[in-house]
Amino acid sequence: MIPPALVGLLQTGVSVVVGTRDAALMPECTRAWGVHVEPDGRTVTIFLTEATSPHTLRNLRANGQVAISCTRPTDHVACQLKGRVRSIRPADQHDRERSSRWHREFVGEIVAIGVPAETGQAWMTEPDLAVDIDVTDVFEQTPGPGTGERI
């Protein structure tokens, strides 16, 4: 279960980096357009685009294992979620609204650390897929004492 403090973190404009692997254990990494935590604190949904993340989606369909690293750009508060894919489905209206809310927050974050607003706005983050994940492990990733520890 994701602790409430981390749920709060995940509701801000965190960068969402998705790690997977193939059958030969070759790692793959891509970015998701936001993360949404279900009220039960055990399931999350990430938003992906087939066109930019084909390798990741192939891995997710093949073995379902995923690690999601979320970092808030302005203060580097971070955590990692590990879990298994429950479903990969077309993004619906709800998902697109969540993703677009995340986009506004995220652009605010990167503009705050010096990225020009127009560069941030030019980032395309319209997802076509939503991936529901059962979270199995949560790790502390904020740099400092305790980094990497399981929560």
């Binding site: 930019t52 030019a122 980032w123 004492p145």
Partner: peptide, 25 residues
Amino acid sequence: DVFRLRAADVYEILTLERVEGFTRL
């Protein structure tokens, strides 16, 4: 006293490709 570099890992770049569709620029 908290941050100390223990080692630097050096990698060989096998391939490098631009991923289209991230930005409108």
